[in-house]
Design a protein around this nucleic acid. Structure first.
Lengths: 201, 201
DNA sequence: TATCTAATTAGATATTTATTAAATTAGATT
DNA sequence: AATCTAATTTAATAAATATCTAATTAGATA
């Protein structure tokens, strides 16, 4: 599965120079020359590291005249941080009394969908309780297609099929890592990255 | 600071064989020979990788006769997962309108401590709301000493000074990564690793 | 004590990777 | 068109690392 991805992500962060780059970019975007100077390496080295960070989707770039400005890809950093943990623990865990927890979660899910959606599939209102809210968000987002890339306009339109407040819901998709956004394009995250209620307490 | 540590941690996870080892260990402890067989490498290679994982505190070992059994060091995996993120974002972030959020958080903290603790410092009862619960837990745990190592008995005794239900509170210390446990010994995590309310929503 | 077993070490090899200097490219500006 | 600037590519080098085989060690067991 995404073992390769997890390895690639950790390789990207397994170098002091790259971590320092990210730390600097966290304060704001910077161009290659400046990064090179601040880190005491040549621009070629920055290009090298930027390539690795880009491949791991950890940074974005923007061109202005001759200068390319690098910036953090926030959402990716946050979502990947837990990916390794998820991967490692996913197969395991069934041993301990987790099964009936999952079972009762399935029951909750059915109840929530029944209670918060109308018969024709509209969302009545967003639950306040986080656990239930996650169920609602995941229920909605599951109607999207894996690998498909959506414009913001398309996402808005899609959400409006469920509820008028598309801006809030769109934001929650990102916050809970159901989707990620890059250069205004939205894409579904793999379900392993979704914020799960089990991981919250 | 712990830049080296963060790099070392990610290096440890930046290899497919090591990730596979961890995945297997998540199901239960295994000895070197078995790991070698399952992964299709020689025992020498397992030793090599086990050394790296041990250096990053990701596994424990236990000897029985001639056989050494490896197992996961759960808490470390969980707490380190966010360390990089914390490191990267720590310096930054002050820019956006975060300051007044922090200010209002300070006010909340004062109110929570005033309301949930008696005059002589006992905990009346645990708040239900997560944000407030974290404040209470952090308030208690702050009375412990950084770097000091505590037995479970000592921790129980310490918590009893605040509330009778030491077992629950002790578990919450671990869950919210205020402390970590290794071989029955408890130690404070650095505050950067503590679950913070800002990171929860 | 001799033998057996699991693990580690030592040494060798092949691969990956971080870095640089020098050449090249992409895109303004004059 | 000529020039300037920032970034990238190329080629080379040095360091790190994943893996193996063979030798050695640590610790039972006979």
């Amino acid at each position: 599965m995404q073992l390769d991805k997890v390895v690639a992500y950790h390789k990207a962060l397994a170098d002091a120079t790259r971590i320092k780059m990210l730390i600097m970019l966290a304060e704001g975007e910077l161009n290659g020359q400046l990064l090179a100077e601040k880190l005491g390496v040549t621009p070629a080295t920055i290009t090298h590291h930027a390539t690795k960070l880009r491949e791991a989707s950890l940074i974005n770039e923007r061109r202005d005249k001759n200068t390319i400005y690098f910036s953090l890809n926030d959402y990716f950093i946050k979502s990947n941080a837990n990916a390794a943990e998820q991967l490692i623990y996913r197969n395991a865990g069934k041993e301990r009394g987790m099964d009936h927890m999952e079972e009762s979660y399935e029951r909750l899910k059915i109840a929530v969908i029944k209670n918060f959606f109308t018969a024709d599939g509209k969302l009545k209102h967003m639950p306040v309780q986080l656990k239930k809210k996650l169920i609602v968000l995941q229920h909605i987002v599951s109607r999207l297609t894996r690998g498909q890339r959506y414009t913001e306009k398309e996402i808005n339109q899609f959400i409006k099929g469920f509820h008028d407040d598309f801006a809030t819901i769109r934001r929650e998709f990102i916050m809970h890592q159901l989707m990620f956004r890059e250069n205004g394009i939205y894409e579904l995250n793999p379900p392993e990255l979704w914020t799960k209620w089990e991981t919250l307490a």
